[in-house]
Amino acid sequence: MTRDFWLPHRIVMAALFAALVVWCVMTLRWDWLPDYLGLAAQGIWRTLWLLALSLLLGMTLAVPLGLAQAAGPLWLALPARSFCTVIRGTPLLLQLWLLYYGLGSLFPQIPWIRQSDLWPILRQAWPYGLLALTLSFAAYEGEVMRGAFRGVGKGQLEAAKSMGMPRLTILRRIWLPQALHRALPTLGGETVLQLKATPLVATITVVDIYAVASRVRQDTFITYEPLLLLAVVYMAITGLIVLAFRHFERRIPTRTA
């Protein structure tokens, strides 16, 4: 494995990369870093959980959205279709601001909401960020899942039906696993895109890792170093996502007819 990996061109690339890193460390200013390490760790953590939760909730919505469009009756397919079209047709930043500055500023005008136990959560910014990210992911993945559900061979579903398998069991054991497997490479890419959509929440006062980098620039007037560090952090998270999906793709065996 290691023998195969360290080919001459890779050794040259690695050496160049190492030289670049050393050059960055030696010539650029990093004296601000210790002061902001705690804040940066909080920021990375917030970025990660926003990503994870929005992926989880978004995917939970995407499966029924895809199914409704692929096989549902018209009264289910039409709303699902409209939802996906509207969300995919408008910028995420716009949705985020509509939720935060629109919906979020309507709430305090309703006295029972302001007095309720939910208010301490509703007055914070992250629920609106999470909601916007979740809806966006659900709409894009709803569309991906529609295609994936359609792509599973009709013959298999008909065969299962003729054997007397209940419809939910067909979905659980045949239709969904194959659809997910088909969609997996696309979902990997979409997850990386979702990661890079998260910095938008910084515009509504959520302090994610991007907001921390802006803070460093605004406090110290140092521009490039925090941005470089930010790029490294996002690349590292992207690397982890890619590795995780490669693992999933290997683990789920291909069983197409």
Binding site: Y101, P108, R114, R123, Q124, T205
Partner: peptide, 15 residues
């Protein structure tokens, strides 16, 4: 906040 305007909006919104 990036602007005072946004802080004012959030003051109105009770955040």
């Amino acid at each position: 906040y990036q602007t005072q305007d946004e802080a004012n909006q959030d003051l109105i919104a009770g955040r």
